[in-house]
Design a protein around this nucleic acid. Structure first.
Length: 623
DNA sequence: TTTAGGG
DNA sequence: CCCTAAA
């Protein structure tokens, strides 16, 4: 069914790509409404009844209201599916009957323009395409939200006609969900330059914060309430200790992600131990083309932790419009103030960071655009992964958005379209303004001006990570001149960006990558990127070499770069063989074939790549 | 200027 | 990271 659905989504979009751009975003917003629809077996949609709407609202409400929160443990087990479809009750004691009438259908919450029944696609269109290009972020948020519902209901429903493949093993069933964003396509790079990678799944073994749980375990209800409040910025009356613990724990780990609807599926995370959760990775697709969401389910054994990728920039606004009330754990959309609280709490409770501590400290100092710092917790991994989804939007935004920045730094108060400005600076010698590294972070902050920080701010991660420059250690040389030693350790987010960049532009086009993905970070020259990539390749290669090392590395916490990333790197390494690094690794001969057989072959820079490769190879053989 | 590579 | 050769 889902596949069906998905298909329709696709088609629907393709068919109705008619840009609805006649609407202003304001108009659009005012017309945004949540609609519930029932999805029939055949994939058609029926508007939901009042009751159902109420029910969904239940989903969004907190347990204390005796309403329903879905905290389902999802697991696939062919043997006895029924048992696997466990739904954890909340203290409020959930009435199962009341919970979801999903036996008969799927509840979907979606945004759509005036709902009209003349077309199923209307629904899809509204949901996936959004009301307007400018609302893309909204759109994506919806798709993820929808996905949640889909997934959820999918499981509750015992839809056997969906082929999950052989359930049980660490196999993954996919619920492909794609949303297209026509509005963004062919933007920044020009369609031809885009490389499309099939969505890949990256398993992430993430150790959950047992410590937190333990810690919380010892707390009294009152304390837990307190913690809850500081974590989520709201009171709770829930008495159930376990629930609180779970919530808080989870919140601590994912508070950043929390603003998105997540509770429907996340349940297991804190209660299960070290289940490897399969993260869906929305791989970079061609800029703005469509985000491909692949839900991977399954992991070691039966329990499944689902982590659904979510568009970061989305959720908040979307949901706030309709469900501002629903600020609660699951669908909690923490206001920035709330998040500050969260932050504070996290700082107290979070287990000592292994690395990237520097980040934390300087994030603080660079609290420029009112953004929040990135969490540097175990969840970071997950977070980062999800981040890649936003990459494009972010990038696009940065590159294209007609946002005006106030240039007080340059002395002129001129307002120049951001994108233009960047290019200008780049082309010109005026680089100093933004290349002028250290001192004026203000400049940096301005680059990601506050203008869009409020609602559009796609990925606070970057803005934060890149914004800070305290990582630089100032070295006093004997020469008397204090000079910076550009030793700034690479943020995971940066690494991710780099990887994304490479996946898009291929190896060797570091300037492009730098310009587009690292525009906000003055440091990190193209050379740096190159170097880093080299390192990454080495790392990934080393990892592939022996698994023991991997394990150890993880245990020793000496591997700052998550395997998932490394894995991606190695995948990319095959697609875009980097000149030299990869000779001793991987089957030397297969690489060439692999290249050919790779369906993903870089469309854009194929030529240059080849020639480059050729040159390199040539050289290599001679050296 | 940018990229590849060595240090 | 830095530096440099080559393009």
């Amino acid at each position: 069914m889902v596949e069906n659905w998905q298909e329709k989504c696709k088609t629907g979009n393709m068919i109705d790509t008619s840009k609805n751009t006649s609407m202003t975003s304001g108009e659009a917003a005012s017309r945004l409404t949540y609609k519930l629809v029932r999805v029939e077996e055949d994939g058609t949609f029926d508007p939901a009844s009042e009751d159902e709407i109420t029910e969904v609202e239940h989903l969004l409400a907190e347990p204390k209201n005796e309403k329903v929160s879905v905290d389902a443990v999802l697991c696939y087990n062919n043997e006895n599916p029924e048992k696997c479809l466990a739904i954890e009750d909340f203290p409020g004691s959930v009435d199962h009957n009341n919970q979801l009438k999903t036996d008969s259908g799927v509840l979907l919450s979606n945004i759509t323009r005036e709902w009209s029944d003349d077309s199923k696609f209307e629904f899809l269109d509204g949901m996936l395409q959004g009301v307007d290009e400018e609302d893309l972020h909204v759109t994506n948020g919806l798709s993820s939200a929808c996905e949640d519902y889909l997934l959820d209901t999918e499981f509750v429903e015992k839809v056997p006609d969906l082929d999950y493949g052989t359930c049980g093993g660490p196999r993954s069933g996919n619920l492909g969900f794609e949303s297209r964003s026509p509005g963004l396509s062919e933007r920044d790079t020009g369609g031809a330059e885009t490389l499309e990678l099939s969505a890949s799944t990256i398993p992430v073994l993430e150790s959950t914060s047992d410590q937190n749980v333990l810690l919380l375990d010892k707390m009294t209800i009152q304390e837990l309430h307190k913690a809850f409040k500081s974590t989520f910025g709201r009171e709770t009356t829930v008495k159930d200790k376990q629930w609180l613990i779970r919530r808080i724990s989870f919140g601590l780990q994912n508070f950043v992600e929390l603003e998105n609807a997540s509770s429907l599926l996340e349940s297991g995370i804190s209660s299960k131990r070290n289940d490897g959760d399969m993260l869906l990775v929305c791989n970079n697709d061609s800029p703005g083309m469509y985000s491909s969401f692949t839900n991977v389910v399954g992991s070691k054994g039966k329990s499944v932790d689902q982590s659904v990728l979510r568009e970061r920039l989305t959720g908040v606004d979307v949901y706030k419009t309709s469900y501002s009330e629903a600020k609660d754990i699951g669908f909690g959309f923490l206001s920035s103030r709330d998040r500050e609280d969260t932050l504070a709490t996290r700082k107290r409770l979070r287990k000592p960071t292994r690395r990237y501590i520097e980040e934390t400290s300087d994030l603080k100092s660079r609290y420029c655009s009112g953004k929040l710092e990135t969490p540097i917790t175990s969840s970071k991994d997950k977070f980062m992964l999800s981040r890649s989804c936003n990459q494009h939007h972010w990038k696009e935004f940065v590159a294209m958005a007609p946002v005006c920045k106030q240039d007080s730094v340059g002395g002129s108060d001129s307002q120049v379209p951001f994108g233009l400005r960047m290019q200008k600076k780049r082309t010109k010698k005026n680089t100093s303004a933004w290349e002028h590294d250290p001192g004026d972070n203000k400049n940096d902050s301005l680059l990601l001006g506050p203008s869009h920080s409020s609602d559009l701010e796609p990925s606070p991660t970057e803005s934060q990570d890149e914004m800070s420059d305290d990582c630089l250690s100032t070295v006093r040389t004997e020469k008397g001149r204090s000079r910076r030693k550009h030793h700034r350790l690479w943020t995971l987010s940066e690494v991710m960006k780099l990887v994304d960049g490479v996946s898009q532009y291929g190896v060797g086009r570091w300037t492009d990558i730098k310009r587009l993905l690292f525009a906000s970070s003055a440091y990190r020259t193209s050379v740096d990127l190159k170097d880093k990539w080299r390192n990454l390749l080495r790392a990934s290669g080393a990892e592939l070499k022996s698994k023991r090392e991997v394990e150890q590395g993880r245990k020793n916490a000496s591997r700052p770069i998550p395997q998932s990333v490394l894995r991606r790197v190695s995948e990319l390494a095959i697609i875009y063989p980097y000149p030299r690094e990869r000779k001793s690794k991987l089957m030397p001969k297969l690489t060439s074939t692999a290249l050919i057989s790779t369906p993903i072959q870089a469309a854009p820079s194929a030529d240059t790549s080849v020639s480059r490769r050729g040159r390199i190879v040539h050289r290599k053989s001679f050296t």
